[in-house]
Amino acid sequence: MISTLIVDDEKLVRKGLISTMPWEKFHIQIVGEANNGQAALDYMHKSKVDLLFADLTMPVMSGFELIEAVRADFPETLIVVLTCHQDFDYIQKAMRLGAIDYIVKTQLEQESMDEVLSRIALRVSYEQSLRISSAAASGSLSATTGKGGEESRKEKEWPALKEQWLSLQWIHNDALFDKLCNYAFHSKEDPISQGIIASLEHCPVVFNDEELRCDLERLFALQSWPAVVRLLSKIRTNLRNNIERLPYFRDIVINVVHVLRYIHQTEDFMMNRDDLAARFGMSRGYFSQCFKNIVGKSYGEYLKELQIRKAKTLIRQTDFPIYWIAEKSGYKDEKYFSKLFRSRVGMNPMEYRKLCKGSESEL
């Protein structure tokens, strides 16, 4: 169960949330309530809390102050803010401080409760799975490099280790970075540098300079593990600086990077924005805003670019009919696909195929 604390200075709001929300359906257990931020912190020093629902405007200690204190003292506790304000700047301030979601109390109706809790429970599950895999992989790491059986054991442990690099949590987690760096080994078939590039290459706002790319590509050429660690430290500093320039809490930025990696891995070009937001535990509106600011374009525009890129590849490399290519690129309507393709490429799919075939015959 996800242990949860409700914090709001209005008793009726607290009691209303506790009694009307379908908590148990989503494995959420209300373990307590508090009427201000300080009382919430006092409770948390005595009892474990996985999830916090906190009002932003409270006496003694505001919700903003509470978020900062929880992030400092209880970094594994996730926070959802309760507000009567629809002002996005007001909400975004809470998100920058580290809240994972928000609920506008005046808009919380019975039919939306399931959607809200489902989204939040997914995000909690996602964060907890990252921590569990991190702890499991870190616990298996060795600080020494041997030969023979030792090397074979490390080869077997490489997939778990690789996932830790791909999680990108090491960018801001000093303890995890130190543990990973103490494990003096990386697979020749699947180097750390390639894994990190694979995670970052689709997010230019984070992975945005040639020096960073060159440093990552240099990693595999280094023969000395201490030299690898020194270069990784430099890479880590640059990545951290890039992330901290964005007006979002670092976990949100890394979450969007994981979204991009997922899109490119699955190549599910019919993926609904709302389903994707829910999969990564983000509200629809906030996901759209974060995606556009971090990636540089809206999700819809980004998906269209991927669909057209996929279609161009299939047209060049196969002789399959256009209706089949349209479907594989995420479009069930061939006419709409052809119209969109022309608007993006400057010619229809058949014209593009003829152009590609003509270019090949001249080689």
Rank of each mutant, 00 (worst) to 15 (best):
M1H: 13
V7T: 08
K11Y: 12
R14L: 01
R14P: 00
R14H: 01
K15L: 12
P22D: 11
E24Q: 14
F26H: 07
Q29R: 14
V31Q: 10
Q38H: 08
Q38M: 10
K46I: 10
D55S: 05
M61T: 03
L66F: 11
V81G: 02
V81A: 02
T83H: 03
H85M: 10
D87L: 02
D89G: 08
Y90Q: 11
I91K: 07
R96Y: 06
I100K: 12
I103P: 10
K105P: 00
S112L: 12
V124A: 03
S125M: 07
S129W: 09
A136D: 14
A137D: 09
G139Y: 13
E157F: 15
A160Q: 07
Q164H: 04
K179A: 15
S187N: 02
D190S: 04
P191L: 02
V205M: 09
F207W: 11
L212K: 04
L222N: 01
P226V: 04
V228R: 08
L231G: 06
K234F: 13
T237K: 13
L239H: 09
N242V: 02
E244W: 03
R245S: 03
I252T: 04
N255G: 05
R284P: 03
Y286H: 09
I294V: 06
K297F: 02
Q307N: 05
L314A: 04
L314C: 01
Q317M: 08
Q317Y: 13
Y331M: 03
R342M: 12
K354F: 11
K354T: 13
K357R: 15
G358W: 01
S359W: 06
L363S: 15
